[in-house]
Simulated assay, not measured.
Amino acid sequence: MRKLVLVILASFYFLSCGKGGSVVPSIPVNFQTSFTDPRVSKLSTQGGAVIVNGYGIAGLVIYRRPDGVYVAYDRCSSYQPEKKCAVTIDDTGFTVTDPCSGSKFSLEDGTPVKAPATAVLRAYQVITTQFTIQVIN
């Protein structure tokens, strides 16, 4: 019986560690605009990233990956999300940084690339047409 309890506890410990899912709370998000909107003009090129405030917990980061796929994340850092610290786009354009903790996250998939963060950024669904981009959850 003792071994069973130890196995269960060890399993829980190992499954809960690492680059797990986002710890940022989920709230309704529905941002939509035309690609001609100046706020998203940087998305016209692959590798372009923009910040849109007023949505999610701390705003949105929308990124056009080198393969042309659009991804969007909440700007709220996954490290101590209760502080609602908004990540900023780095000069490289490939990562964002939490100015409160120094954590860095990849814009490719939202995973942390520099400690102390261990959880991914909250991702949102991106729907595009020829003329519009929409970020929802």
Rank of each mutant, 00 (worst) to 15 (best):
M1H: 04
R2Q: 01
R2E: 00
V5T: 14
L6P: 00
V7C: 02
I8S: 04
I8M: 08
L15S: 14
C17A: 12
G18K: 07
K19H: 04
G21L: 13
G21S: 11
V23N: 08
P28S: 11
N30E: 10
N30K: 12
F31T: 06
F31Y: 15
F31D: 03
Q32I: 15
T33Y: 07
T33L: 06
S34D: 14
S34N: 15
D37I: 12
P38W: 05
R39T: 12
V40P: 02
S41Y: 10
K42L: 11
L43N: 07
L43R: 01
S44F: 01
T45E: 15
G48E: 05
G48D: 07
G48V: 04
V52M: 08
N53W: 05
G54V: 13
G56F: 04
G56K: 05
A58W: 04
A58V: 05
V61E: 10
I62A: 06
Y63Q: 09
Y73P: 02
S77K: 12
S77P: 08
S78T: 05
P81S: 06
K84Q: 15
K84N: 14
A86Q: 09
A86D: 09
A86P: 14
A86M: 11
I89D: 04
D91S: 15
T92D: 15
G93I: 12
F94D: 12
T95I: 05
V96T: 13
V96C: 10
D98F: 11
D98I: 12
P99S: 10
S103F: 08
S106Q: 12
D109W: 02
G110I: 04
G110A: 03
T111W: 04
A117L: 01
A119L: 01
V120E: 00
L121A: 03
R122V: 00
R122T: 00
R122N: 01
A123T: 04
Q125A: 14
I127G: 04
I127D: 10
I127T: 15
T128K: 09
T128Q: 08
Q130R: 12
T132F: 11
I133M: 05
I136T: 15
I136H: 00
N137L: 03
